Computed example of a mutant assay.
Amino acid sequence: MSETKNILTYAGLKRYEEELHDLKVNKRKEIAQKIKEAREQGDLSENAEYDAAKDEQRQNEARIEQLENLLKNVEVIDEDEIDLDIISVGCNVTVLDKLDNEEVDFMIVGATETDSREGKISNESPVGSALLGKREGDIVTVETPMGEMEYEVLAIHRGNRGE
């Protein structure tokens, strides 16, 4: 059985590697110190600080395991090698929302990097998957939970606009 690759940009890979390092090195030490201090208070059966520190330790270890699993099966997209003739994962796309008549910028990323506040949409989302393979000038109709949307692809580029 083949596992699905986690698609990441180099920036996403770096962010997850830094988070993993911080959790393993800094957060583990911080939690160990909290547990040590709580143990020094005596009776552990009614020690809320000890229970809270142990819960934090469990959550930290679970996040470490999650990140390690994500990173061991990763495919990194080299944004410098992306073909800007067609939309693919790693591309930044400027589209015209035909309904609102406004320009919208998206970056197409793998599902693990999705962040709507930053305009990063998943290649697996309705809009992301509809845009894949399209070219400048193409009109894309997408069925979304908010109804049918129509976009015109205005530009395909690297980085954010103006970079």
Rank of each mutant, 00 (worst) to 15 (best):
R135D: 10
G119D: 05
A130K: 06
I121Q: 09
V104P: 00
P126C: 10
V109G: 00
E102T: 15
L131W: 11
N101Q: 15
E102H: 14
I108S: 02
G119W: 04
E124A: 11
F106Y: 14
M107Q: 08
A130V: 03
K120E: 03
V104C: 05
L131V: 09
V104M: 00
L131D: 08
S129I: 06
D115T: 10
M107T: 12
E118P: 06
T112M: 10
S129T: 14
G133I: 03
E103F: 03
N123H: 15
T112V: 13
K134W: 00
L132T: 00
E103Y: 00
E102C: 09
S125C: 13
K120Y: 14
E113F: 14
E103L: 02
M107E: 07
E113D: 09
E124F: 09
I108L: 13
L132Q: 05
P126T: 04
G133H: 11
N101D: 15
G119F: 10
F106M: 07
S116T: 12
I121P: 01
D115L: 13
V104Y: 04
E103S: 08
V127Q: 00
D115K: 14
R135F: 02
E136Y: 05
S129D: 07
D115P: 14
I121K: 01
S116F: 13
R117K: 14
G128N: 08
I121R: 06
G133M: 10
A130P: 08
F106S: 09
G119K: 06
S122Y: 01
M107L: 07
D105P: 07
E103N: 09
N123E: 12
G133S: 07
G128A: 05
E136S: 02
A111M: 02
I108N: 01
E136C: 04
N101M: 11
G110A: 05
A130D: 04
F106A: 11
I121D: 04
S125N: 09
E124W: 07
F106H: 09
T112Q: 11
L131K: 06
E124T: 11
E124L: 12
E113M: 10
T114V: 15
I121A: 02
G119S: 05
E136N: 08
V127A: 03
K134C: 00
G133Y: 02
M107I: 05
R135H: 15
G119E: 06
G119V: 09
N123M: 13
